[in-house]
Amino acid sequence: MSIELSMPKSWRQETKPHKFCPGCGHGLVLKALGRSIDELGIQDKVVFGCDIGCSLLAWDFFNVDTVQTHHGRTTPVITGIKRARPDRIGVAYMGDGGGYAIGSQHLVNAAMRNERITAILVNNANYGMTGGQMAPTSLPGMKTETSPYGRDPEHTGMPMQGPEMVAAIAREGAYVARGTIANVRQATTFIKRALENQMAGNGFSFVEILSTCPTNWSTNAKDTWHFVEQEMPKYFKVGEIKVPGTKEE
């Protein structure tokens, strides 16, 4: 079996191998998204927006119409497209800094308005592209470039509970889940459901995916995997949080 055969059909082969760091989780998230696009047969309908940060490297990742935006501004760009062209399937792809810090007002209000778009947020607990600063999602005690002695929740708060916040403010019809690259099959299911939710016109759909950043975490393969699989879920509960038509817990 060749490597090409394992790629999602919607991936752009000319741009592979991709440009993410070795051990980065983005590739797996984008594989989950690619598989979902393939399975739903929507490659010609998707408009993909990528945020600034490592997410921007996905700008030529798919054979899907794609636009790079600004840090935090992918949600409004995709919202603008969807409002003008409801027949498109809008996907906003961003990191934790873009979604929960600089672009948090856009996430909150897109959720509040139940925008018929799908936001996928990759949570790797730090700002990757800028060199490993503390993010809203950094874990307590986690050492980053701007918290060299470890994140102190007294001064900088606890890790942002993004999907929980979105679930709390979005109306019925919204789909909210948190997946992890430690379980790609499940993450693919969540992303696919999020896209289906948009296609059905139900409401906003939001999936956070726990991911890795060995470059900035300065971890080897074993420790990287341990962090995403064992440490992050202590603060970020994996699973579906809001599903249309079901009773919430």
Partner: peptide, 26 residues
């Protein structure tokens, strides 16, 4: 004709950018 009231002018600008990208006279 359509209208969207956004959360701030950052968003009003970027949604306009999105609308134009989609081919709308926005």
């Amino acid at each position: 004709k359509k209208f969207l009231q956004t959360e701030d002018e950052i968003s009003a600008g970027f949604t306009t950018v999105g609308g134009v990208l989609s081919g709308a006279r926005a």
